[in-house]
């Protein structure tokens, strides 16, 4: 079956790699188009926490504190040419650290970033050693005695099935 499909040999795969790489390169590098001021305000407000209602972003929250932060972001977007990150930093500075939604990458808070990485590394190392252990344990090759035991079990089961044709 494998031999019959010669198209699936390496030329097809090489072509595939070129198509994917080309499309990705073109799609990633091209200009996404201008954003409306509202879209910038939205993107920025999704990165900020509502200071009085734990658990909602400024974007989702409907209370007055969030409304005033949204107004300030809007003001910054239209009146200055600061970048999104600069506006976020400005808002956090103006409205307090409670609006910081993304945990900082320094101090104790960096743990929330570090621990998942450590967990990933541990999982990878654990898998590596498991596979190595499984590889060295290739005494699972059935010998003649094992095969005889399986044959006996199968024969017994077939005999039992023959006795109970109703089931």
């Amino acid at each position: 079956m494998i031999a019959a499909s010669s198209v699936k040999r390496w030329p097809g795969w090489v072509l595939l790699v070129f198509v994917v790489a080309g499309c990705l390169a073109y799609g990633v590098t091209r200009d996404a188009g201008a954003r409306t001021p509202e879209e910038r305000v939205e993107e920025i407000s999704k990165q900020l926490a509502c200071p009085i209602c734990n658990g909602e972003t400024v974007y989702e929250s409907r209370n007055t504190a969030s409304a005033s932060i949204r107004a300030e972001i809007k003001n910054q977007v239209s009146a200055t040419d600061a970048s999104d990150d600069a506006i976020i930093a400005y808002i956090v500075q103006q409205f307090g650290a409670k609006t910081q939604l993304l945990p900082r990458a320094s101090g104790f808070e960096s743990l929330v970033w570090v621990i998942p990485g450590v967990a990933l590394v541990c999982a990878g190392v654990g898998l590596f050693f498991s596979f190595r252990k499984w590889r060295t344990n290739v005494d699972t090759v059935p010998d003649a005695a094992d095969r005889a035991r399986v044959d006996a079990a199968l024969a017994a089961e077939d005999a039992a099935a023959a006795e109970e044709p109703a089931s």
Binding site: K46, Q47, A49, N54, G55, T57, A97, K98, Q100, L101, L102, P103, E109, V112
Partner: peptide, 10 residues
């Protein structure tokens, strides 16, 4: 003893 928020960006 301070409040932080971990939200959708994270």
């Amino acid at each position: 003893n301070r409040k932080i928020a971990v939200g959708s960006p994270f």
